[in-house]
Amino acid sequence: MSPSRALLLPCTLLLGAALSAAPLEGVIQPFRQVEVSAPVSSRVEQAKVQEGEAVKAGQPLALLYAKLEELEAERTKALLERREFEAKGAKRLYDSKVIPESKAVECRLDLELARLQYEAAAEQVRLRTVLAPMDGVVVQRYREVGEAVSSGQPLFRLVDLSRVVVQCAADPAAVAPLAVGAKVRVRLPQLGEQAEADGEVTLVDPCADARGKVRVKVVVPNPGGRIRTGLPAQILLP
């Protein structure tokens, strides 16, 4: 081998090593998580789900005490039916010119007021059923049956694990090749030493933090919930 080729070979190897970008170290987070709070002050009458249970959007999570509200709804419903009967009778009498128009209008207004009162009472009953705002898994239940809750007080914490987010903080120069929407590979040590998955860049923060780092987020599909959150992962740069 000529002296020139012997010098060129180590330089080529060094150049190749320099071009291999180091992966970004990150942490896996839930794609979405919410705390479901009590819409009104009341008492937990019945818990419908347990921690670790998968739920669908709109599924009841808990029932709050609602006896007084149910009685009020029944009262206003009966009043509404009475006003409907009176309004129909007043219309017939007005059409027959037995009563003046003012009396018919008064009965119609009483009917509308009764309908509003019933809708308000029915809404108070509906608020006593706590519903899941999204598909997810119940990871925490803050209150047990019989405990009092205040309006706005958390009752459950739900996480959406159909996808996960790998978030890291990196030097701006290191993430220069990345753009929102770019496809990257993510290494997942929890699934095996060489386990990888496809991900999509959803955030390259344009603003650096006090350490001079920028946030990067990559969303990875998680069918079957195999990928667990809170564990490390690596974003492989192109």
Rank of each mutant, 00 (worst) to 15 (best):
F31K: 07
R32N: 14
Q33R: 10
E35Q: 13
S37M: 08
A38Y: 03
A38D: 04
P39A: 01
P39R: 01
S41G: 14
V44T: 08
V44P: 02
E45L: 07
Q46I: 00
Q46T: 10
A47K: 13
K48L: 05
K48G: 07
V49M: 01
V49K: 04
Q50G: 03
G52K: 00
G52C: 10
A54G: 08
A54V: 04
A54R: 03
V55A: 01
K56T: 02
P60K: 02
A62C: 01
L63S: 05
L64M: 00
L64W: 04
L64R: 09
L68D: 14
L68C: 14
L68A: 15
E69Y: 09
R75S: 10
R75Y: 07
R75K: 12
T76G: 08
T76R: 13
A78M: 04
E81L: 09
R82Y: 14
R82H: 15
R82L: 14
E84I: 04
E84W: 13
E84V: 13
F85T: 10
E86L: 14
E86W: 07
A87D: 12
K88F: 08
S96N: 15
I99D: 06
I99P: 06
I99W: 10
S102F: 04
K103N: 09
E106F: 06
C107F: 12
L109F: 12
